[in-house]
Amino acid sequence: MTVRVQQAAFDPGAELNALHAANLGIGAVVGFVGYVRDFNDGQEVAGMLLEHAPGMTEKALGKIIVEAEQRWPLLRLEILHRVGRLEPGEPIVFVGAASAHREAAFDACRFVMDYLKTRAPFWKKEDTAEGARWVEGRASDQAAAQRWGEG
């Protein structure tokens, strides 16, 4: 169970393959990759700057991992989130969950992303033709997190 916050790019395929390495009890691996899009809220996006709160970020992600482990029988759970300057098409975030069976892996992966979206201190600032703008939180993200109930 690991949390990584880094500027460096990563290979989503390699992250996914690493999840089931050397554990033959793993029967299911589910991975989510979030990418930078080139368009958002009616404007072309040339890139973005991802700010975070060092110290608080690792704690918040660690707390999400602990909660996921309490809810599902997971064999591995990884969160990798990039910070700093990112270009359209680049992966921002990887969440991978491994379990004996698919249901726990599917659910835990989605849960971690839903909680990360609303409970981890990251902020996106997009570059557009009209200048840089901070991305605002979405009500749909709050609703997605609330679906899992308070815990």
Binding site: A53, H81, L116, K117, R119, P121, W123, E136, G137
Partner: peptide, 24 residues
Amino acid sequence: EMCALDEPLADGDEVAFFPTVTGG
């Protein structure tokens, strides 16, 4: 650690204020 506005405060604490998070 993220908290609500009614979180108790004590001398020596660190407090952060920030807009809605937008990671992922």
